[in-house]
Measured scan of single mutants.
Amino acid sequence: MASQGTKRSYEQMETDGERQNATEIRASVGKMIDGIGRFYIQMCTELKLSDYEGRLIQNSLTIERMVLSAFDERRNKYLEEHPSAGKDPKKTGGPIYKRVDRKWMRELVLYDKEEIRRIWRQANNGDDATAGLTHMMIWHSNLNDTTYQRTRALVRTGMDPRMCSLMQGSTLPRRSGAAGAAVKGVGTMVMELIRMIKRGINDRNFWRGENGRKTRSAYERMCNILKGKFQTAAQRAMMDQVRESRNPGNAEIEDLIFLARSALILRGSVAHKSCLPACVYGPAVASGYDFEKEGYSLVGIDPFKLLQNSQVYSLIRPNENPAHKSQLVWMACNSAAFEDLRVLSFIRGTKVSPRGKLSTRGVQIASNENMDAMESSTLELRSRYWAIRTRSGGNTNQQRASAGQISVQPAFSVQRNLPFDKPTIMAAFTGNTEGRTSDMRAEIIRMMEGAKPEEMSFQGRGVFELSDERAANPIVPSFDMSNEGSYFFGDNAEEYDN
């Protein structure tokens, strides 16, 4: 993207840094990872977990959730003011799984939030270390993106479920800051804005008074975040219109849905970061690795190297396929839920299948599930090659597409044709070009129609051997075009429920 120079890199967003050079960025990201790792080690000690239990991804998720809940100030305040039966607002906890007599047992633990905050700050040299908290939120978000298709949420806001490739980060909490905003897809931002506008339509006082002023500035800020994701002048001009509207209503909703559809071809720039579970960072720190000293990046080879040398386990339900569970977590670790499966298959070195073909449910185990038949197995999170994460949407291309997802959002900077089903997408653009945004709409449609099938995206960008740390010898991959490109292809993934 041309304006790259004016933006802070995501590592800076990730670490609240002012302008830093590459070495400083690597050190501050490393410091953040160190903090998460030290916190995780301490929690495993508190909970008396064995090494194996500490490497269980379900335990990692519970521990991450506990610290996120302990620092969720708004919710904590709300819980104190609106006490609900049987919930102690000062405590947080969740299921911890232990191996007892050759069987997995679930144990519900409860801790004072104050105590968890103390352990977290102690692991982070006394700081609140917001960057580390956001990092864990993005890992949870990436896992949700890989596990669930947001059909219901899309339909509720009037969008087409086939636009799911635009929904990265749709389950990120509001408090995820600049680093969170960077990884949100165009569809996620559109959905947040539509929800806001709908509230304004239904509630006369939404934009009024002292609160209304705050609401208005939040609305304009979200519009600017979305505008910054678009790469064409016409899309940005249309966002200006939406932002400046005196009284946002149905016309703005129409414009936003139009823009979301246009992003299936004229893709937005959305950041991709490899955020790993805390149970990967903990053992690495415990083994003596100093992330701050060595430096770390979320968008280069580092996460690949770390996963190459990590042992992570997962509980497996009786009829689940461990290899499929591994694929789910591998995609989440690489922030690749909406990437082209052919690119992923090449990088991973084994075939990556669409969601609907995987015999696996989510990673988390519900409290009512029976533990008797639970097994555990090693997650295979290694890769054959590594590639640089991208934040450009890439230019655009036609490809055989599917009944489910009709476009992709690249996660890796790797040369390819970008699949999208042009006739299906263009069919949504018939007729409606009147109104105050008509010239911009016409211009956007013209650009979409001009998108050429034979153009290559990320020209000359390749993948790298894991021994090639400096990215000196790019390998331009070859793809098996007979395979499906979309992950949520004609899909039956479970729906995400809060």
Rank of each mutant, 00 (worst) to 15 (best):
M1E: 10
M1Y: 10
S3T: 05
G5D: 13
G5R: 00
T6D: 11
K7N: 07
K7R: 05
S9H: 07
S9M: 13
Y10E: 01
D16A: 14
Q20V: 13
Q20A: 05
A22R: 01
T23M: 00
T23V: 00
R26M: 09
A27I: 01
A27V: 12
A27Y: 03
S28W: 07
S28N: 02
V29G: 07
K31C: 14
D34S: 03
G37Q: 14
Y40A: 06
Q42E: 08
M43K: 02
E46G: 09
L47H: 14
K48L: 00
S50K: 01
D51N: 00
G54S: 15
R55E: 07
R55N: 04
L56H: 00
L56R: 05
I57A: 05
Q58R: 13
N59I: 12
N59T: 01
L61P: 06
T62D: 11
T62F: 09
I63A: 01
E64F: 09
E64W: 07
E64L: 03
L68C: 06
L68I: 04
D72V: 04
R74A: 00
R75I: 03
Y78K: 05
L79T: 09
E80H: 01
E80R: 01
S84N: 09
G86N: 09
G86V: 03
P89G: 00
K91Q: 14
K91N: 13
T92K: 11
I96V: 05
I96M: 14
Y97G: 05
K103Q: 08
K103E: 14
K103S: 01
W104N: 05
W104A: 02
R106I: 07
R106E: 10
V109C: 05
K113D: 10
K113Y: 10
E114H: 02
E115A: 03
I116M: 14
R117Q: 02
R121M: 04
A123P: 06
A123K: 09
N125L: 00
N125M: 05
G126T: 00
D127M: 09
D127I: 01
A129L: 00
T130A: 04
A131T: 07
G132R: 04
G132P: 03
M136Q: 04
M137S: 07
N142F: 08
N142Q: 08
N142I: 13
L143A: 09
N144A: 01
T146K: 03
Q149I: 08
Q149V: 14
V155I: 12
R156N: 07
G158C: 14
G158Q: 01
M159Q: 12
R162A: 01
R162N: 13
M163H: 14
M163N: 14
Q168F: 10
G169I: 04
S170D: 14
R175N: 09
A178Q: 09
A179N: 08
A179D: 13
A179S: 04
G180V: 05
A181C: 05
V183D: 07
K184M: 12
V186L: 01
L193C: 00
I197P: 08
G200S: 04
N202T: 02
N202W: 00
N202Y: 03
D203Y: 05
N205Y: 01
F206Q: 03
F206N: 07
R208K: 12
R208C: 13
R208G: 13
R208Q: 06
E210N: 04
R216F: 10
A218D: 02
Y219Q: 10
Y219W: 02
Y219K: 10
Y219S: 14
E220A: 02
E220D: 04
E220H: 11
M222L: 13
K229I: 04
T232I: 14
A234D: 15
R236M: 05
D240T: 01
D240G: 02
Q241M: 06
V242K: 04
R243Q: 01
E244P: 01
S245M: 11
N247T: 00
N247L: 06
P248M: 10
A251L: 00
I253P: 10
D255T: 11
A260W: 08
R261L: 08
R261Q: 13
S262T: 06
A263T: 04
L264Q: 00
I265C: 02
L266S: 14
R267T: 12
G268L: 12
G268H: 08
A271K: 13
A271D: 03
A271L: 09
S274L: 10
S274D: 08
L276F: 12
L276R: 13
A278K: 09
C279Y: 12
C279H: 12
Y281Q: 09
V285P: 09
V285S: 04
A286I: 09
S287P: 10
G288T: 10
G288M: 10
D290K: 10
E292N: 13
E292F: 06
K293R: 05
Y296A: 12
Y296H: 14
G300K: 11
G300D: 06
I301K: 05
D302S: 03
D302I: 09
P303Q: 02
F304M: 15
L306R: 03
Q308L: 03
Q308M: 00
N309T: 00
S310A: 00
Q311P: 15
Y313A: 03
Y313M: 04
S314K: 12
S314Q: 12
S314W: 12
I316A: 15
I316Y: 10
R317L: 02
N319K: 02
P322V: 14
H324L: 05
K325M: 04
Q327G: 13
L328S: 02
L328F: 04
V329A: 06
W330T: 03
W330V: 04
C333H: 08
N334H: 02
S335W: 06
S335G: 00
A336T: 09
A336C: 03
F338H: 09
F338A: 00
E339P: 05
L344K: 09
R348S: 14
T350R: 03
K351E: 07
K351I: 03
K351R: 14
V352F: 10
V352E: 03
S353T: 08
S353Q: 09
R355H: 10
L358G: 05
S359I: 02
S359F: 12
T360M: 06
T360G: 04
T360V: 00
V363P: 01
I365T: 04
I365W: 08
S367D: 07
N368D: 05
E369A: 04
E369M: 08
E369R: 07
N370M: 05
M371P: 00
A373I: 06
E375C: 00
S376Q: 08
L379R: 15
L381I: 15
S383A: 00
S383C: 15
R384E: 03
A387M: 11
A387H: 11
R389N: 11
T390Y: 10
R391P: 11
R391D: 11
R391M: 08
G393T: 05
G393Q: 08
N395M: 07
N397V: 01
Q399S: 00
A401T: 14
A403M: 15
Q405P: 01
S407C: 03
S407G: 12
V408C: 02
A411R: 00
L418T: 00
L418W: 10
P419M: 06
I425T: 06
M426P: 01
A427D: 04
A427L: 15
A428R: 00
A428K: 02
F429T: 02
T430N: 02
T430K: 00
G431N: 00
G431K: 01
R436P: 10
R436H: 03
R436C: 10
S438N: 15
S438L: 15
M440E: 12
A442E: 08
E443P: 07
I445L: 14
R446I: 06
R446H: 04
R446E: 15
R446M: 04
M448V: 13
E449Q: 14
G450E: 09
G450A: 08
A451M: 15
P453V: 01
E454S: 14
E455A: 03
E455M: 08
S457K: 07
F458Q: 10
F458M: 10
Q459T: 04
G460T: 09
G460Q: 09
R461A: 12
G462E: 08
G462W: 10
E465I: 10
E465W: 04
S467C: 03
R470W: 13
A471H: 10
A472F: 12
S478W: 01
F479I: 02
S482R: 04
Y487H: 15
F489V: 15
G490A: 08
D491Y: 05
E495T: 04
Y496Q: 13
Y496F: 08
Y496D: 13
Y496A: 01
D497L: 15
D497H: 02
